[in-house]
Amino acid sequence: MKGQIYPCGLEDLTQLQKISIETFRDTFAAENDPADLNDYLVDAYALEKLERELRNPDSRFFFLYLNDQLAGYLKLNVGKAQTELADKDGLEIERIYIRKAFKRQGLGRQLLDFAFELAEKEKREQIWLGVWEENQNARRFYQAFGFEQVGAHAFYVGTDKQTDLIMRKKLF
């Protein structure tokens, strides 16, 4: 079953904060110290920070709805908004999250396909993302779509230094 994808704007700020916190917590709570996780969530998803991200013309958010319910979201970056590679011809998938009740329905794939279509329409040479080295399911998912590891960087959850693998797929 396919969901509907809509651009997310400033009017969606509180809903974006809610789904961001919910999906990150659901995805990573079991593997992280509760205090570190809470510190990360407070900082990363503060309303002021999300508002700045929404106002940045090089960042775009999209909500995914299934049966009129918010099922997930996607954040894409280009230009100077990219967190690592900052390739003028690249597109970064910074966040792709599906709510727990909607997992295993092909919605992550739908968001990824949407990102590919947008990248191709904009003639981006590559699409890339960071994925936690311990998240084996996500790594396998991205590898199945042709992403290859090209580097790594530190990612902090509170005070806990973790490693995100940088994965890239060349499009042209």
Results as ranks from 00 to 15, higher is better:
Ser20Val: 04
Asp87Gly: 15
Phe147Ser: 08
Phe116Ile: 05
Lys49Val: 10
Arg55Tyr: 08
Met167His: 02
Glu92Gln: 06
Arg55Gly: 12
Ala115Gly: 15
Met1Leu: 12
Glu53Ile: 12
Lys123Met: 10
Phe141Ser: 14
Lys75His: 14
Ala154Asp: 11
Asp43Ser: 13
Asp26Trp: 07
Ile21Thr: 09
Gly79Glu: 00
Ala30Arg: 13
Asp43Ala: 11
Asp58Glu: 05
Tyr40His: 15
Gln105Ile: 05
Pro7Lys: 13
Tyr156Phe: 11
Glu92Lys: 04
Phe116Arg: 00
Leu41Tyr: 05
Ile21Asp: 07
Arg104Ala: 14
Asn56Phe: 04
Lys169Gln: 00
Tyr156Ile: 02
Gly158Thr: 00
Lys18Trp: 01
Ala115Val: 14
Gln15Tyr: 05
Lys88Met: 15
Phe116Glu: 02
Leu54Ser: 07
Arg55Met: 15
Asp33Ser: 09
Asp113Asn: 15
Lys80Cys: 08
Lys170Trp: 02
Leu37His: 09
Ile96Thr: 02
Ala144Met: 05
Asn135Ile: 05
Phe145Ser: 11
Arg104Ile: 04
Asp12Cys: 11
Phe141Thr: 12
Asp68Lys: 13
Leu54Val: 14
Trp128Thr: 08
Thr159Ala: 04
Pro7Val: 10
Phe172Gln: 10
Asp58Ala: 12
Tyr73Ala: 10
Phe24Ala: 06
Leu85Gly: 02
Val150Phe: 06
Phe62Arg: 00
Lys169Arg: 09
Tyr73Arg: 08
Gln162Arg: 01
Asp12Met: 08
Val42Asn: 07
Leu85Phe: 00
Ala29Asn: 07
Thr14Ala: 12
Phe116Asp: 01
Thr159Ser: 02
Ala152Lys: 15
Thr23Gly: 06
Lys2Gly: 07
Gly3Phe: 04
Glu11Arg: 03
Arg168Ala: 12
Glu117Asn: 07
Ile98Val: 00
Leu13Asn: 01
Leu74Lys: 03
Phe172Met: 11
Arg124Asp: 00
Cys8Ala: 14
Asn56Gly: 06
Val131Cys: 01
Arg95Trp: 08
Gln136Phe: 10
Leu91Gln: 06
Cys8His: 02
Phe61Glu: 08
Glu31Asn: 11
Leu47Asn: 04
Leu64Tyr: 00
Thr83Glu: 12
